[in-house]
Simulated scan of single mutants.
Amino acid sequence: MTTPHSIVSGGTGLVGRFIVEALLTAGHRVTVLGRKAPPDGFFSEPVAFAPMKLDPISVSTGLFEGADFFIHAAFDHLPGKYRGGEGDDAEGFRRRNLDGSIALFQAARTAGVSRVVFLSSRAVYGPCPPGMMLDESDVCRPDTLYGEVKLAAEDALTKLSGDGFHGVSLRVTGVYGPAGEGRLHKWAGLFEDFLSGREIAPRVATEVHGQDVGTAVRLVLEQSAVRVSGKVFNVSDLVLDRRDILALVARSTGSGNTLPDAGDASMVNAMSTKRLHALGWSPGGMPLLEKTVPDLLARP
């Protein structure tokens, strides 16, 4: 059996690293696209690297020669910001992240890549009534440029699908989990604030472990085209209160600092994941969170 060759853009990012690791575990040969090559030992196994900028002018079919799959996880934004990540350069943000993404999809199709997975976002849904469950069939009304760009890229990939080329979009919620070597995980600042005794505002949000995102990517690559081509899938696991996260921190560290007040989970728009579960996806839930928090605390 031929070893599948997968190209992953943004593979050194928090989410991209989990995707690369999931593909390596599944036996794929992986090439990472990005601005900088990953440092030695960044991944559990060696990967190839090819330089890439999210710029439609610089994209070429040569990036995808010999590849079976392309997973597009790269996104250009201000550090630490997705919504509002365009700063004062909305036109450049759109050119890089929308025009650049479409150019990559087109180049992959021309090069003979059979399947593309695009990492989209729950931001495509836009504001919804409090407590409403988000379903892939809902009409999307994004209220941020970030959400607009993600939705437009989804639509472009769907329109390109057909004739042996199959696009799939994953609408991913907040992703947690350990970061790569020398990098901070997403809750590092929250943990530091709590352990330092600072006041923490209540907040409830939807979360999914990066490991479960990697599994979702692997699953949609393994399905028959008829089950996934041109479709979107929500990727979310927990409706998670900061108080519950920090209670795990307190238990692991013995801290007696005051926990924040509980947030109002009834106001959160959770994401239905029935479509993804039908493919065999089963996220880690609270047991994985309870295992992950002590691991995050143990990391420098």
Rank of each mutant, 00 (worst) to 15 (best):
F75S: 09
E65K: 11
S252I: 07
D163V: 03
V168G: 09
V293D: 02
Q223H: 03
L276D: 09
Q211I: 14
L195N: 07
N269D: 09
S236M: 10
K53N: 11
F105H: 07
K186T: 14
R109L: 00
A179W: 00
V175E: 12
H209E: 14
A156T: 04
E45K: 15
F165S: 06
A298L: 09
Y82C: 12
E136V: 14
I57G: 13
H166W: 05
V204D: 05
R122T: 13
G11H: 11
R122E: 14
F105C: 09
E181G: 06
G285I: 05
R29Y: 00
V15A: 15
G280W: 01
E154L: 05
S272D: 15
S272Q: 06
R29M: 05
R227I: 07
Y146E: 11
A278C: 06
T206P: 03
A250C: 10
M132G: 09
L279T: 07
M133Q: 15
F105A: 03
P130I: 04
G177W: 01
G80S: 10
V149H: 02
I102E: 14
R83N: 13
T258W: 01
E65P: 06
L288S: 14
K159H: 12
C140Q: 14
S58H: 09
R299P: 05
S6L: 08
A67H: 08
T215P: 01
F42L: 12
G197A: 11
P300L: 03
A111R: 04
S169T: 03
L170V: 07
S58N: 07
R243E: 02
M52H: 01
G189L: 04
E222F: 03
P300C: 02
V293H: 02
L276H: 06
L157R: 00
L24W: 00
L145T: 00
A90F: 06
L119I: 08
V117G: 09
E136S: 13
L219T: 11
Y146L: 10
A73H: 04
A103D: 07
T61N: 06
P287R: 10
K150D: 06
L145A: 05
E136G: 13
V139K: 12
P38R: 08
H277G: 14
L184P: 06
D264G: 08
M286F: 09
P56N: 07
D55Y: 04
R96D: 07
H185W: 00
S224I: 00
V8E: 10
G16V: 08
F70D: 04
F69W: 13
L246D: 05
G66E: 10
H209T: 13
W187G: 12
A205C: 07
V15W: 00
P202R: 08
R242S: 11
A265Y: 01
V220S: 10
L24D: 09
